[in-house]
Amino acid sequence: LEAKFDDSTIFKKIIDSFKDSVTQINFVCSESGIEAQAIDDSRVLLVTVSIPPSCFESYRCDRPTTIGVYLASLAKLLKSANTNSSLTLYVADKPDELLLLFEEPKNQKSMEYKLKLVDITADMLEVDSDMKSDVTVEMSSVEFTKTVRDLTQLSDSFTVSVTKDGIVFSVQGDTAQGKVLLQPREDLADESNNLSISMSKTIDLSFASKYLLDIIKAASISNKIFLKFSDDTPALFEFKMEKGGGVGFYLAPKYDD
């Protein structure tokens, strides 16, 4: 594998977006890019990552390779990332380490790190990425982040309901309750503020607040978030990158006993 990002912070943002959700991950590298999937320890949150060749300045993968890494270690190395430096990932044919080369031609500087790879035997779940959903919402990731931060302070359960009137996020705590209603809007001046809903039926689902607080860490990847909901199935929270690919979180709902 030889894969070069023209801006090293792209890879840093991707890794930082889920490093607190899962501890380790297998990156599966092939001609068609880098894909990964990992489940959190409580088996409630599934992270999927897709970095297609279009995200790289140059991308070459001669034979399919799996690179297993501890995310905490990789994240430490990526602290060196900045917008002035490129980052090339190298993995040899018999992979036992990942080489990260940061280059800042303007400053005549380069940095090289090596990360030991780990053998990860992880459960893989078969997720149909074309999974039909009853409700799809596209909205500003900034707005979503703020709503999650504000409401999750009040309760460890977070409810999402979507009707033709809009999307309602609500919490019911012991001492306080809160509700945020967002209606579809079109902001011609800044389309990242748009909110659109397409639905075939209404939904009303609850999730544990702590996972939503993990999910919003990925908001730096994109100024938009796509939400997909169906009754009694995991919800999908997806951040798509401008150049293709992105990071998605499947979150299992809570149900009333």
Binding site: I39, S42, R43, V44, L45, L46, D123, M124, L125, E126, V127, S157, S206, A208, T233, P234, Y250, A252, P253, K254, Y255, D256, D257
Partner: peptide, 14 residues
């Protein structure tokens, strides 16, 4: 009280 579903209740292992 709400209970928490697990992912494998919905997805199959590969």
């Amino acid at each position: 009280l709400a209970k928490q579903d697990k992912l494998e209740d919905f997805f199959d292992f590969i």
